[in-house]
């Protein structure tokens, strides 16, 4: 059997996909801007509104405001949402509706370059959004430690994990109806991953299940950074996200290959 010798995770040519998306989105800058505002609105509503209703929290012997607790969770969530949109909706359209990728494959680009390029694009956006989010966090006083700066790479890692995972999911989507299924998974992930309240409030067994949620791992990691509380387990959390990213990208690349060059 002849198999194609492809670079496992794409090559430097993937930057061209990034360039392509930048060129296409240049005329849709409003959409880019919305990516800045959405998480900011969350942050404002939570710090101003909920923060007043919910008194100071006491977790593991530390006391802090609810906004301080919830902000890293919101950052993780916005990284997830952004990555999922960039890696599921848009690539699905290019893969199966507009057939944009077919034209790219007649050029020196390989299938793996396309997959990696889409992930890079998601990461570029995530990098900008995360920076603006963290600055707002700091300005609103929701960060307790200068180590909050580490939330930046942390959020980028989160986006990396979710965009690779999303890109793999995207290849299994058959029609627009399937996006309801994606929402069905994304919603509980968003609500129950320790983003709004600590998972210690759950029964033990449920907490154990939720610890598999990449969003929980991300939120916990970012919370550690923003509070300046470091723990060895954070290395585990980061590794977990990294593994999801690499497995996701690998699956996405293979699936892209199967769909685009059967």
């Amino acid at each position: 059997m002849l198999t194609r010798a492809l670079p496992l995770f794409g090559s430097r040519r993937s930057v061209r996909v990034l360039e392509r998306n930048a060129l296409v989105y240049r005329s849709q800058w409003l959409m880019l801007l919305s990516g800045f505002f959405e998480p900011l609105f969350y942050l404002l509503s939570l710090s101003i509104g909920l923060n007043k209703l919910v008194g100071p929290l006491h977790i593991d012997g530390h006391a802090f405001s609810y906004a301080t607790f919830v902000a890293p969770g919101m950052l993780a969530t916005s990284a997830m949402n952004g990555a999922m949109i960039d890696s599921i909706f848009n690539p699905f359209f290019r893969l199966k509706i507009s057939r944009t990728y077919d034209a790219l494959l007649a050029t020196p680009l390989e299938v793996t370059d396309i997959a990696l390029g889409e992930v890079l694009w998601a990461l570029v956006r995530a990098t900008l959004y995360a920076a603006s989010f963290i600055i707002c966090m700091a300005l609103l006083g929701d960060a307790r430690s200068p180590w909050v700066i580490l939330c930046w790479p942390g959020a980028i890692l989160t986006s990396f994990a979710f965009s690779c995972f999303g890109l793999a999911v995207c290849t299994y989507i058959r029609s627009w109806q399937d996006f309801d299924l994606v929402a069905l998974v994304q919603m509980p992930l968003f609500l129950f991953s320790g983003t709004f309240f600590p998972i210690t409030l759950y029964p033990r067994w449920l907490g154990a299940i939720i610890s598999f949620s990449p969003l929980y791992q991300s939120a916990a990691l970012l919370r550690g950074f923003s509070l300046g509380q470091f723990d060895w387990i954070m290395i585990m959390r980061a590794s977990y996200l990294l593994v999801i990213a690499l497995v996701g990208l690998y699956v996405a690349s293979r699936r892209f290959q199967k769909i685009l060059t059967p």
Binding site: R20, L23, S98, T100, D102, A103, A106
Partner: peptide
């Protein structure tokens, strides 16, 4: 020059 043009319609 493929059978389907697959041009970037937005550009």
């Amino acid at each position: 020059v493929p059978q389907e043009d697959s041009l970037e319609l937005e550009l």
